[in-house]
Design a protein around this nucleic acid. Structure first.
Length: 855
RNA sequence: GCCCGCGUGGUGGAAUGGUAGACACAGGAGACUUAAAAUCUCCAGGCCUUAGUGCCGUGCCGGUUCGAGUCCGGCCGCGGGUACCA
């Protein structure tokens, strides 16, 4: 009998699929279309287990849909712009383009053996001139519709390297290469007007029923709609009013001071006038630009000397402070602080000795405040300085009362604000899509003409490869690329040297897949046929930015005529898989030459003497469990080793089994071998069934078990319960192995087993199908349907509980009525004993489930 | 800091508010074999000098319920996001 040899089977059937071209997607009006998409990878050059898990899940869906009669689009590409390529060029020479395309070749080579049902003919990379040229065309169309504009924004600035840093390049407030303290600096940059769509992006979330609730909630919080009061504080020096926005106007009588952002116009004016203010503002601008850095950094304040009057009491003066934790981007960049009811204001007031005036009290509590009292808006509190007398109100009611009063008296108005800021897309980098505009001394900022697209990245500089060892953006110092003619007046002009955020690249690739070679960004007919993405699969780490930006882009593309109306929400269903995690191994004894932590690969370390050590040097290693697999942390497991040893089906089976798809999975090497053993066993069982002859017993029972397996495995596949499907397949395999049924019955059951396994282990299933005389390819054979009449059970076993604890069980006919079941239960030995002749207080009978006797 | 998620045996995990630990990994015992590998069968949450089907048990504390891993409140721990990583 032939043995299971994965390498032979897998190459044989991959070739068969390719020859039959069954995964090439062509529009077909006679079949329902199904577009399944996994988030495309960054071409790091190394396929890791997270990729394998992600693509295998998508492949299970795609293959199941193919078998259930759908016309499936299942494409793959690469999110190929971005900093790692430039970092690599800086670290070890070479060119980002060569590095990236080399990695893409490597990754395609690593992916092909997995046997994914991908339409490779549609593959592209976002760094293809063809792709980013179309992206430039989109940019120009957006510009024309007013969806793009320029304004100032802050970036992380490294004063030693004289370059902009990404947040990840800022470590503890210092530049990762230079070690210099990072500053916030303002540059003029391009922005997408995503904030115009705040309300729509928020309300449309309700329609995304097949998205995880947690992703919708995360986006809702991110968009951050709030209702509040906007009003002006009058300056005692006669200057222009300071407009503030507050979500808690009910605390206005507890106001202690007015705070403005260091980037507020008043602060900027003072900065120009006073060296002291300039020094303070400069201090505020030290540190990174991330929300986290600003929130967790030390709270700093500076009393400007400006005084304002309280809107409800002209004799009440409040000081105006510049505070480093106030963001210019949110609200009006100015607040009033009520330290009694805001923890941050409380700390600030305590530090700078400002008054703390309670507005309301906890109806249940007493004593002076030692920290801010911050009840939720739904909680009832007793107002002592509110707007509705001393009534007990919820915060919500208090806010409404305050807004009503302000509007009635005409000194303020209720407004809605959003946390969502416009999307800054400018990056001061080389390896990205050039922003297709020209700066002309006479005409200003001029869009490139579409016929001049693509504005391609220059590969050389004066005939030599671009030098990435010099700090700064190579495009900035590339005269022959930078110098151009104004598309408007024809005079000498200069190109924009900023490139686009890589999130732009990934915000429309799903649309490009529907017509990857079109000479416009999309082909509307193809988009109408294939869109929307029926099932999108990717990591939860993309829950906010990528998915929100794509939703915005789909709307912008609809407005500019590149997508149909129905594609405003481009992803009908979303599934967020968990991450594949793995322990990190940190060298505990030394750092690298730049003082940074050294991370070791799993293969480089060993466990001994109760510790973990580097094999070669014997250095001690700190083990940090369950961290996201990340290239920079060197905790990436190589799936190719498993494929080499056991074959792709084993790797696929293994990543789907055990862990539920939405949960993180900690990678451990053990288990892959066991998966392989199981697949070998399945192959052997199929081979035995194929060779079997004669009659047996229990054909009907095997048939019933087969149909149960069809029902349960199908349900698992349809609901992303792949681990549940696999558990059922184990069970069904055991049943088949032990069955005494006749040859014909066993062969039919084994064929069903091959079909049910085919989305997960497609090669093995083809081999089994072939062995058992199945017609054609199992990949295209119609998916089996469970016969309901075979699934009905005649009797059911009910547990009997006494006071909620299991004390026995009874087996009764499935349809026995409740009274009859109760009678039987009360006659049960354990119940009789427990009642000891008395009457039960209560008997609960849940048909088909349980009986609980309360004694 | 803020937002989101997760926490069940030695391990991965199962369980529409209804028998906690399905299915598997690692482990143990046995069968087959000259032997090994492979394969097959069985055992397996913890506790106890009472081995009962007894008590305890789903991160911790409390609540709702006839009944809570599941729902609610409060903690603790871990992970993700935090707008220039992708």
């Amino acid at each position: 009998m032939s043995r299971y040899t994965a390498s032979e089977i897998e190459s044989k059937w991959q070739k068969a699929w390719e020859e039959a071209a069954i995964f090439e997607a062509k529009p077909d009006q006679d079949k329902p279309k199904y577009y399944v998409l996994e988030m495309f990878p960054y071409p790091s050059g190394k396929l890791h287990m997270g990729h394998v898990r992600n693509y295998t899940m998508g492949d299970v869906i795609a293959r199941h849909k193919l078998a259930t009669g759908h016309n499936v689009l299942h494409p793959m590409g690469f999110d190929a712009f971005g900093m790692p390529a430039e970092n690599a060029a800086m670290a070890s020479g070479g060119h980002p383009k060569d590095w990236t395309y080399g990695n893409i070749d490597t990754m395609v080579e690593q992916m092909k053996p997995l046997g994914l049902s991908l339409d490779w003919s549609r593959m592209f990379a976002t760094c293809d001139e063809d792709y980013y040229g179309q992206q430039q065309a989109l940019f120009l169309d957006f510009l024309e519709k007013g969806l793009v504009y320029r304004k100032n924004a802050v970036v992380n600035w490294d004063p030693v390297d004289m370059t902009v840093l990404a947040n990840e390049q800022v470590e503890n407030g210092r530049g990762w290469r230079s070690g210099a303290l990072v500053e916030r600096r303002e540059l003029t940059q391009w922005f997408f007007k995503i904030s115009d769509y705040s309300e729509e992006l928020l309300s449309a979330l309700d329609g995304l029923e097949n998205w995880p609730a947690k992703v919708r909630l995360m986006q809702e919080n991110w968009i951050g709609k709030s209702r509040g009061l906007q009003f002006g504080f009058k300056r005692t020096d006669g200057g222009e009013d300071i407009t503030v926005y507050t979500t808690r106007p009910d605390t206005l009588m507890g106001a202690s001071f007015v705070g403005i952002s260091p980037d507020h116009p008043i602060a900027k004016q003072l900065e120009a006038e006073s060296a002291e203010v300039a020094a303070f503002v400069a201090e505020c601008r030290k540190g990174g630009t991330t929300e986290e850095a600003i929130e967790t950094g030390e709270k700093l304040g500076y009393d400007t000397g400006i005084r304002v009057t309280h809107p409800l009491d002209p004799n009440w003066e409040l000081p105006v402070w510049i505070a480093n934790f106030i963001l210019m981007d949110y609200g009006t960049g100015a607040i009033f602080a009520c330290p009694a009811h805001d923890q941050r204001d409380f700390e600030f007031a305590t530090k700078y000795d400002l008054p703390i005036i309670p507005v309301f009290e906890d109806p249940k509590a007493e004593g002076p405040l030692t920290e801010a009292y911050v009840p939720t808006k739904a909680e009832k509190v007793r107002y002592v300085k509110g707007f509705a007398g001393s009534a007990e109100q919820t915060g919500e009611e208090g806010v409404n009362t305050a807004v009503d009063k302000a509007e009635a008296e005409g000194w303020g108005e209720g407004v809605a604000k959003f946390r969502l800021r416009d999307w800054g897309l400018s990056r001061q980098r080389y390896w990205g899509c050039p922003i297709p505009v020209v700066h002309c001394d006479d005409c200003g900022v001029v869009p490139e003409k579409k016929e001049n697209l693509p504005i391609a990245l220059p590969y050389d500089e004066d005939g030599k490869p671009i030098d990435f060892s010099v700090p700064g953006n190579p495009l900035d110092r590339h005269p022959s690329w930078r110098d151009c003619k104004c598309p408007n007046c024809g005079k000498p002009a200069k190109r924009e040297t900023d490139t686009m955020d890589t999130f732009v690249d990934s915000s429309w690739y799903f649309a490009r897949f529907t017509a990857p070679k079109a000479e416009t960004p999309t082909d509307l007919d193809a988009a109408k046929y294939w869109m929307n993405v029926d099932q999108y699969i990717g990591g939860i780490e993309h829950a906010i930015l990528h998915l929100l930006y794509s939703r915005f882009f789909a709307r912008a593309m609809e407005i500019t005529g590149h997508l149909p109306e129905k594609s405003k929400e481009p992803f009908d269903a979303l599934f967020t898989q968990g991450m594949v995690t793995h322990a990190i191994f940190e060298n505990a004894e030394r750092k690298d030459a730049n003082g940074r932590t050294i991370y070791h690969y799993p293969a480089e370390v060993e466990e001994r003497d109760g510790g973990t050590f580097v094999k070669e040097t014997g250095e001690k290693v700190n083990v940090i469990p369950s961290a996201k697999m990340s290239k920079s942390k060197n905790n990436v497991v190589d799936p190719l080793a498993i494929i080499d040893a056991f074959g792709a089906d084993t790797a696929r089976w293994f990543v789907l089994s055990d862990s539920p798809p939405e949960r993180d999975v900690e990678w451990t090497a053990s288990g892959a071998e066991a998966a392989h053993k199981h697949l070998s066993r399945v192959y052997r069982i199929a081979a035995e069934a194929a060779a079997a002859t004669g009659d047996g017993q229990g054909d009907d029972e095997l048939l019933r078990e087969t149909h149960k397996a069809i029902r349960d495995v199908s349900a698992g596949v349809e609901s992303f319960g792949f681990n549940a499907s696999i558990a059922k397949l184990y069970g069904f395999t055991n049943t088949l192995a032990k069955s005494k049924a006749g040859a014909k019955a066993k062969q039919e059951a084994a064929k069903v087993l091959a079909q049910l396994m085919s989305p997960m282990t497609p090669h093995l299933s083809e081999a089994m199908w072939d062995l058992l005389g199945g017609e054609g390819l199992v990949a295209t054979a119609p998916w089996p349907v469970a016969d309901e009449s075979l699934l009905v059970e005649a009797s059911v076993t009910l547990p009997i509980q006494i006071n909620g604890k299991r004390r026995g069980e009874i087996t009764v006919p499935k349809d026995m009525d409740k009274a009859e079941v109760e009678k039987l239960a009360l006659a049960h030995e354990a119940v009789v004993k427990a009642l000891d002749g008395g009457q039960p207080k209560k008997v609960i009978v849940v048909p088909g489930r349980i009986v609980n006797v309360v004694a």
